Every structure is written in structure tokens, then in C-alpha cells.
Amino acid sequence: MNKITVLKYILLCLIVSQSLFAQTSKPKKSKYNIVVAQDGSGNYKTVQEAFDAVPKLKSERTVIFVKNGTYKEVVTLETDKNNITLIGEDVEKVIITYDNYSSKINPVTNKGYGTSNSSTCFIIGTGFYAKNITFENASGPVGQALAINIQGDKAIFQNCKFLGFQDTMYGADGRQYFRDCYIEGSTDFIFGSSTTFFDNCTLHTKGGSAITAASTKEYVNFGYVFSNCKITGTGSHITTLGRPWRPYAAVVFINTEMSDAIKPAGWNNWGKVENEATARYSEYNSSGIGAYPNERVSWIKKLTANQAKLYKVKNVLKTTYSNPPFVDNWNPNKVIDLYK
């Protein structure tokens, strides 16, 4: 083999190797549209900046990844920012937190924030999905102080934590699904009018009048449904399962393990005997020390096995909150399955 032939062979080998390197080293397309990182290694340093960057009225889903960090900010997802997915790196290390509360003075209005405006996070857009995120109101036991205010329909939370005291979580007219979440608080820490399915969640009470304060509309079939959940607490006989913020409050606990944090009576009429005739409170197969099957108030309903079958995810969430409602067969698991 002469020198020219050898050089041609070497050149050919270099071309082939470069081609193979280019193919194997070509960067893969990221599964995230936006990355949030406090250290500047992402597209934005705050969650709010990421939300603001999403085009309005976008139909396809936008996926935002949040790197570990404590993000002290009030976050608002506007009404025209739909189908947003927010995924945290680690639920214990991705914390969205702030410390507003009802009586705290808002420097813009020179008045108290009020309950609904005290929230750390406002979800108004439709189709929101959060995974591995902690939402916190860090103001402490100072009265009403929301960690999250959910106004948009079809909101989903998976493996998320919600930390606060009074009024930790508020849901307005709409549907929500919580799977494998941890929610803690004191008085009425889950409240509002929403139709919400809590699937395999832990509720941790720090005491107060009730865990739930539902204000379900009369025409709505389902309010709060707790299925295969667990209730823990900081003491014995420190709270009830619910009290009706509005007369037709609807709350059911199915296959839920209850600690002795629950009072034997279980439920409260909010000081109005007439609420006992309208509130739709029920239990099925409650277990644990706090179940007290023979000591519950007489005006709640104990479901049969057949009645309990109605409280399935697909049945509870298939109908809109509109008046009159219509069936759109919303199934939150279709969204969750995209991010396994």
C-alpha cells in the first residue's frame, strides 16, 4: 500500500469516526419546555417568571421543571395560562413559600389581605398539574393564611405537600384531584366549594374545630371525597372531620384510617341545628382509633358497600361544576400517566 493510499484510508476513517461521533453525541431534546433554577442554571430563577413566559391560551401542555430550592414568592397562574405541568426535582426540597395572612396589611391597598388573597400560590388557569412540589404558607398560627388558592378547573396534584395552619387549602367552584399528597393545618385547613377527590393522601391536623369546611353548592352531587386516606394529628380528640361552611356541604370518608386526633362525635353542625338536615356528610369503612363507629353524631350517613361504589374517581369527576352540570368524563389519570 503506497503512501497516498494510506493517507486516503486514514482520511476516510476520520470522516467516518466524526460522522459516528456527531450521531451519538447529538443532544437529546429535553422533555421540559422550561427549567427553573435559583442558581441561574435554568431558563428562569423564579416560578413566577416561568409562568409569565408561557404563551396565553396555549392548547398543548407546557412542562416546567423546578430544581431544588426554597422559592420565596407569591405565585399566580393566570386564567389564560392553561395546561401547565409543574414538576419538582424533590418534593422535600422544592418549596414555594410566602408568609401573607388575612390581617396582614397589604402595602398596595393599605388594608388586610383577607382570607382568599393571603395565599402563597394562586392557580386560576385550567388543566394545571403539579408533581413533587411543596406549597407552604409560613406565617404560622396567625389566623387565616392560605398555602394555595385553586380556582381553575381540572387541577391535579401528585406527591405534593401543603403546609400551613388555618385555611391551608382553598378550592373554588371546579374539580381537583390529589394523589399521594400530604396536607397539614389546623382549623378548616381544607375548605371551599370544589369537587375534590383525595386519593391515598395523609391529612395531619394540628387541632381546631374541623379538618374540612365545605361550601358545596346544592346542585353539585359530590364535594370532598377522601378515599384510602390516613389522618394523623398532634394530640388526642383535637378536631372533627368537618363542619358545614354552607348548608349543603358534602364530604365523605371512605376506607380512611383515623387516629385519635378525631373526636368521637366526628362532625360538627357549625352551631346551626338546621345544617343537620342539609349537610351531606358520610363515612364508609373508617378504621383506626378515631373511627368511633358507635359514637358519631346521628345525622350523618353511614354508607353501604353499594353506595360506596359510587365514589370512584371517574364517577366523581366526570361532571362539570356548571349549573346545570354536564358530563365531559374528565379523567385526571390520563394526564398523570404522561409523566410516569
Score class of each variant (00 low, 15 high):
Phe135Met: 10
Ile148Met: 10
Gly125Trp: 02
Ile133Asn: 05
Cys121Thr: 15
Ile123Asp: 05
Ser116Gln: 12
Ile133Thr: 01
Glu136Cys: 14
Gln144Ala: 15
Gly114Asp: 13
Gly140Asn: 04
Leu146Thr: 06
Glu136Phe: 01
Pro141Met: 02
Gln144Asp: 13
Ile150Ala: 07
Asn117Pro: 07
Cys121Leu: 13
Tyr113Ala: 02
Ala130Glu: 09
Tyr113Ser: 02
Asn132Arg: 04
Ile133Pro: 00
Tyr129Ser: 07
Asn149Leu: 07
Lys131Val: 10
Thr115Gly: 05
Pro141His: 09
Gly140Ala: 04
Glu136Leu: 09
Gly114Glu: 13
Gln151Ile: 15
Gly127Arg: 01
Ile124Gly: 08
Ile124Phe: 08
Asn132Asp: 15
Ile148Val: 09
Ser118Cys: 12
Gly125Arg: 13
Ala145Tyr: 13
Ser119Arg: 08
Ala130Pro: 01
Thr120Cys: 12
Lys131Leu: 06
Gly114Pro: 10
Tyr113Pro: 14
Ala147Ile: 11
Gln151Val: 01
Ser116Ile: 14
Ile124Lys: 11
Gln144Tyr: 13
Ile150Val: 14
Gly143Asp: 05
Gly127Gln: 03
Lys131Glu: 15
Ser139His: 00
Tyr129Thr: 10
Val142Lys: 13
Asn132Ile: 02
Ile148Cys: 06
Lys131Trp: 10
Phe128Lys: 02
Asn117Lys: 07
Thr115Phe: 06
Thr134Asn: 00
Thr115Trp: 10
Lys131Gly: 06
Ser139Cys: 04
Ile133Lys: 00
Phe135Pro: 00
Ile123Glu: 00
Lys131Asn: 11
Thr126Val: 13
Thr120Leu: 09
Thr115Tyr: 13
Ile123Leu: 14
Glu136Val: 03
Ser139Val: 01
Asn149Lys: 12
Ala145Cys: 10
Gly143Met: 03
Ser119Gly: 14
Gly143Val: 11
Ile150Tyr: 04
Cys121His: 03
Lys131Asp: 10
Asn149Ala: 11
Ala145Asp: 15
Gly125Thr: 09
Phe128Thr: 02
Tyr113Thr: 03
Pro141Gln: 13
Ile133Met: 12
Ile124Asp: 11
Gly127Ala: 03
Ser118His: 09
Asn132Cys: 04
Ile123Asn: 03
Gly140Ile: 12
Tyr129Phe: 14
Thr120Trp: 10
Ala145Trp: 07
Thr115Arg: 15
Ile133Arg: 03
Asn137Phe: 06
Ile150Thr: 13
Ala145Ser: 15
Gly112Ala: 07
Thr115Val: 13
Ala138Arg: 07
Ala130Lys: 07
Ala138Met: 12
Phe128Ser: 06
Ile133Phe: 08
Gly125Pro: 05
Ser139Gly: 02
Asn117Thr: 09
Ile150Leu: 05
Thr115Gln: 15
Tyr113Met: 08
Asn149Tyr: 14
Asn132Ser: 15
Phe122Arg: 00
Glu136Ala: 14
Ile133Gly: 00
Ile148Arg: 01
Thr115Met: 08
Ile123Val: 12
Thr126Trp: 08
Ile133Asp: 00
Glu136Asp: 09
Ser119Val: 12
Phe135Val: 02
Ile133Gln: 01
Gly125Ala: 11
Thr126Gln: 08
Gly125Ser: 00
Tyr113Gln: 09
Gln151Asn: 14
Glu136Tyr: 02
Asn137His: 10
Gly127Phe: 06
Ile150Phe: 02
Cys121Glu: 03
Asn137Lys: 06
